[in-house]
Write a protein that binds this DNA or RNA. Structure first.
Length: 309
RNA sequence: GGGUAGGUAGCAGAGCGGUCAAAUGCAUCAGACUGUAAAUCUGACGCCCUACGGGCUACGGGGGUUCGAAUCCCUCCCUACCCA
């Protein structure tokens, strides 16, 4: 299939919608490579719980991540004890896109971290203020009200639009204020490597189908040793707090392993949490679309056969 | 057959004469999102309406007391446990 060399293909959608398989299929069709846009698959050792695609056996020793005969990028690139955030992603993803194109291949972005994907495509640039762990530690002892009062005094403009009850947002805003004196407004420049004329495919199975897929996938993950995986990560020096901060399977299994919840509760609450996560992802996508971006919604991967890419 | 504790919104579970369409949690639905984004946060949630207000139906069924009941009394049905 012939396609413009600049075009970017994105495969988005809620968790368990079948993005990974579709991405590999399309990569074969388009002679492409996959860039994972997943905030948890970047971490090495977090495999079952994040649903990483299985590495082809012949590539295990390689430093390239090959799955289904397709090269994947931005998987296993960070240590779980090190923070990897959107800023790292934007830098790395742009680099990788350039690199893939230089080799004459088609880049495909695939992942569920839509915040990252949207920022990449729109060339959003965030204030260049790196996280300040000491300040964050200090501020995290305060209530949202207290944080808001501080922000109001230091940067009323940002305070006017921020979510007043969201400690994480408030702390980040105060962090930026501490470094720059004020929170600059978001700037979006013309995307350099990522193009505006991307095709964004959103995999969106019917609700009941998605729910069932989530349920089955979770059972499979347990059967595949997911609990042991989390146990192993903790054994390698990743503390419970950090594991819980990853959310979903890592959070609930960490709680189980600390005996703060029983197995039955864990399974039920985890399944609910995954469903809530999928809903949030969908909510983000609808908003993105409402903002004027064209998304191609597909309820069944087979439909992609008839979509011109 | 006797006794005791109960029957409250989709579920769990408070309330025990008025301020109760009924706390809280869960589920469900919708939303937010300026370097933690699988995180974090918000709202709706009996029904109807010209919805910051109003109407209707509700706390197992029926009846009663009272100005007024989910809350008190009678009765019936059901559930759990205990004694036979």
């Amino acid at each position: 299939m012939e396609l413009p060399p600049h075009k970017l293909i994105v495969i988005a959608g809620p968790t368990a919608s079948g993005k990974s398989d579709l991405a590999i299929e399309l990569a074969h069709r388009l002679d492409g490579e996959i860039i994972s846009a997943d905030s948890r698959q970047v971490y090495s050792g977090m495999d079952i719980g994040t649903g990483k695609v299985l590495r082809d056996s012949e590539s295990v020793a390689d430093d390239e991540y090959i799955s289904g005969g397709i090269r994947h990028h931005l998987i296993d690139i960070a240590d779980p004890n090190e923070a990897y955030n959107i800023s790292d992603f934007l830098r790395d993803a742009n680099r990788v896109i350039t690199d893939i194109r230089a080799r004459g291949k088609q880049p495909l972005i695939c992942g569920g971290t839509h915040f990252w994907i949207q920022a990449l495509l729109e060339g959003t640039s965030f204030p260049a203020v790196p996280p300040d762990p000491v300040l964050r530690d200090h501020l995290s002892t305060k209530t949202a009200d207290e944080l808001y009062t501080l922000l109001e005094a230091q940067d009323p403009t940002r305070a006017a639009t921020i979510d007043q009850k969201n400690p994480i947002r408030l702390i980040r805003a105060l962090e930026i204020v501490a470094a720059l004196g004020t929170v600059p407004s978001v700037t979006q420049h013309e995307p350099s490597t990522a193009e505006n004329h991307s095709t964004i495919l959103v995999l969106n199975p019917p609700k009941d189908v998605l729910r069932e897929r989530i349920r089955i996938r979770l059972l499979n993950r347990f059967a595949s040793g997911m609990i042991e995986e989390v146990e192993g990560l903790h054994g390698q020096g990743i503390d419970w707090e950090r594991l819980e901060s990853f959310g979903l399977e890592y959070r609930f299994i960490a709680q189980l392993l600390q005996s703060s919840i029983d197995q039955e509760t864990m399974r039920i609450e985890l399944e609910h949490a995954i469903w809530h996560y999928a809903r949030r992802q969908l909510s983000w996508l609808r908003r993105w679309e409402r903002q004027g971006t064209t998304l191609t919604w597909i309820s069944d991967p087979k439909e992609t056969m008839s979509i011109p890419l």
